[in-house]
Design a protein around this nucleic acid. Structure first.
Length: 640
RNA sequence: GCCGGCGUAGCUCAGCUGGUAGAGCAGCUGAUUUGUAAUCAGCAGGUCCGGGGUUCGAGUCCCCGCGCCGGCUCCA
């Protein structure tokens, strides 16, 4: 007994009533002709729908125009179809895989005999422009499975997906001009809405991400509503290339790689200073509340069997030949947890001493597949700022609060904005529901206590416990997952960890895994890109470069260097070449300070200070004042 | 690991369809002694990633390695 009309509530609270079967476009037209023209899609009760779909139900409705962020994925998804349309015109035999919108654009996977070349991409892009010019409507149709099978008889990949639908599921197809796709939509009304797009790259991609399946050719592209937004995005990509830590690592002489040790960095003197400075910072922050331990790098398999790594993680471990046994039954450590557990278990612990926190900055090795290696962000050898906390269950809330403050404080030092993800119990898990309830509640309470927003990732926790992941956003808006707080109920069981409780009986502690930087290597890569190589003074490998105007003033410059070094400031004297040459060189190296000494300064014991970014607005000050300024800047780890 | 691209001087890059390897910067030497983003001149510097092969002749073509780069479900 369906009513003949359906009701829509607009964002301003106004209610509109339309005939059942009306479309969102009809609705937009009622609101106003300009809105109808600008409309790209609609959201009804949180569900994005196309403008042309006949609606059976009303609800809270919002018409999406290009001003609305939710419209962009719709545009991009349509762009993927336009790409496929173009590819099919030029390569009629290309099989089609999936073509979704993704965070910064879209892709489409094709099954073709020959991989695409850059020239192919240019041709596809030109053909896309033709498809756009034809302004083909995106037609949507509901089909049953048998009909769909017939429609996609020549598209094996689509057929495979089709067979996964249950018989009563709604299957929809979209067609624009000659191109038909199995697709849940929605799409913009027609191809003409796509104006500002660009194909970016092509690469191989396994069908359904499965390395046992065939390799398809994926084309990545992006699309925006306006040219300005597209240009800005392309500019951001360019900026990211400019800041690439691999490039800056060479230009600023921080680290290098040699083929004889793939995935392991050589740190240069400057890079080592940077690394050590960061490490010293971490140590200083951990001094009071953490117990740093150093543990062996190499272990027999007995430890890994106990921890479970030998069974589950061996592929990623570097196995080492034991000459006596003739077997590869030793391994470099890929993680610190087992050795920490071993140490914890080596003594009796009172409930009074918990929580106890073991921290280790040792080098770890993980045998990543060769194709995964990339600069400092994916390496085989790295050091974690690792820590394992052993605590009573009733201490979880306080401890998580403590660790969160600790981690967030670290990121703030670098001006990295952070966001939090709360990952809850996965399907595959160990431990009782009561334990999970307690653990999740404790983590949630700690999150709430910070007053910060967090995102829940239901089912994304580790199999041994829920976790909080820390993501940071760098200065050009890119996201990185860094720190983590993970509750672990399994390790205490495997290692039979205990503490003696108030009742004089043994109890099982809980373990928390904590990392802040993640790995020093990756964190430094992020810092290089975040600061574009212009490190804050406290981190900069060379903090001051002293430049005598000519060799006549070298002695005076050397005195200043000695004074700076006596104050533990990293200073170098450079007196060759002309002054402009050296200034340019120091600018290129992005040094925080140049200290210039000539006749005037040598005469009255001053220094002309040129601060990075201030260009010619230098300041002449007494040398003591300069030292004091620097020391204060370094002490406070100023970002200015 | 798999697909594709790339690998020429310390760095950035030229080197056409196979015919004796080049530039700029950096380095060295000399002149210049310099006041805020490159002073001038000269010199030196290369198993063209490694190994095979085709060819009268290979940086260039083919094969095999190595390394690097882009990617390898953000699910119709």
């Amino acid at each position: 007994m369906a009513a003949s009309t359906i009701r829509f509530t607009l964002p301003d609270g106004k209610v509109l009533e339309l005939a059942r079967g009306s479309t969102a476009l009809d609705l937009a037209a009622v609101i106003g002709p300009r809105l109808a023209k600008a409309a790209l899609a609609a959201v009804i009760d949180g569900q994005t729908v196309g403008l042309m779909e006949p609606l059976e139900e009303g609800g809270a409705v919002r018409i999406l125009t290009e001003k609305d962020a939710a419209a962009l994925p719709v545009l991009r998804h349509s762009a993927a179809h336009v790409l496929a349309t173009a590819v099919r015109e030029l390569r009629p035999r290309a099989g089609i895989g999936f073509g979704p919108a993704i965070e910064d654009g879209f892709y489409y996977d094709f099954d073709v005999a020959e991989p695409f070349t850059p020239e192919d991409l240019a041709a596809f892009e030109a053909k896309m422009a033709e498809v756009v010019a034809k302004d083909m409507p995106f037609g949507r149709r509901r089909v049953d499975k048998a009909e769909a099978r017939a429609l996609f008889a020549d598209d094996p990949l689509k057929l495979e997906r089709l067979e996964e639908f249950s018989d009563d599921e709604v299957i929809t197809v979209y067609q624009n001009g000659p191109f038909l796709d199995l697709c849940k939509g929605p799409h913009v009304p027609s191809t003409g809405r796509l104006k500002h797009f660009k194909l970016l790259s092509a690469a191989g991609a396994y069908w359904r991400g499965d390395h046992r399946r065939q390799m398809l050719q994926r084309i990545y592209g992006t699309a925006f509503h306006t040219k300005a937004e597209l240009d800005e995005h392309l500019h951001r990509l360019e900026e990211a290339r400019r800041r690439d830590h691999r490039r800056l690592g060479r230009e600023l002489d921080l680290f290098q790689f040699f083929p004889v040790s793939p995935g392991a960095a050589f740190w240069t003197p400057r890079g080592t200073t940077l690394y050590n400075t960061l490490e010293a910072f971490v140590r200083e922050r951990q001094r009071d509340a953490f117990l740093e331990v150093k543990t062996p790098l190499l272990y027999t398999k007995a430890l890994w069997e106990q921890s479970g790594h030998w069974g589950k993680y061996r592929e990623n471990m570097f196995l080492v030949l034991d000459n006596e046994s003739g077997e590869h039954d030793m391994s470099l450590k890929p993680m610190n947890c087992p050795s920490h557990h071993l140490y914890y278990a080596s003594a009796t612990h009172s409930y009074r001493e918990l929580p106890v926190r073991y921290a280790t900055l040792d080098v770890l090795h993980r045998n990543e597949v060769s194709g995964a290696l990339s600069g400092l962000t994916r390496v085989r050898q790295f050091a974690q700022d690792d820590c394992h906390v052993y605590l009573r269950e009733d201490q979880i809330a306080d401890e998580v609060k403590f660790l969160m403050d600790f981690i967030l404080g670290h990121y703030e030092t670098f001006g990295l904005k952070s966001s939090l993800k709360f990952a809850t119990r996965p399907e595959q898990r160990i431990g009782s529901d009561e334990q999970w309830d307690r653990a999740e509640n404790a983590l949630r309470a700690a999150l709430e206590a910070t007053g910060r927003a967090y995102e829940v990732q239901a089912g994304d926790g580790a199999f041994y416990g829920p976790k909080i992941d820390f993501h940071v956003t760098d200065s050009i808006g890119r996201h990185w997952q860094l720190g983590t707080i993970q509750l672990d109920y399994m390790a205490p069981e495997r290692f039979e960890l205990e503490y003696v409780g108030e009742d004089n009986a043994p109890h099982r502690p809980v373990v928390i895994h904590r990392a802040v930087c993640g790995s020093f290597e990756r964190f430094i890569a992020i810092l290089i890109e975040h600061f574009a190589g212009a490190f804050p003074t406290w981190l900069a490998p060379e903090q001051v470069r002293v430049l005598p105007v000519s060799e006549k003033w070298t002695a005076s410059g050397a005195e200043l260097v000695a004074q700076l070094r006596a104050a533990s400031i990293r200073a170098e004297l450079v007196d060759r070449e002309t002054l402009p040459y050296r200034i340019r060189e120091a600018e290129t190296l992005k040094l925080p300070y140049m200290a210039i000494v000539g006749e005037r300064e040598a005469g009255d014991g001053t220094v002309a200070v040129r601060k990075r970014g201030a260009e010619k607005k230098q300041e002449v000050m007494s040398r003591d004042a300069f030292v004091a300024t620097l020391l204060e800047e370094i002490r406070t780890r100023s970002l200015g």
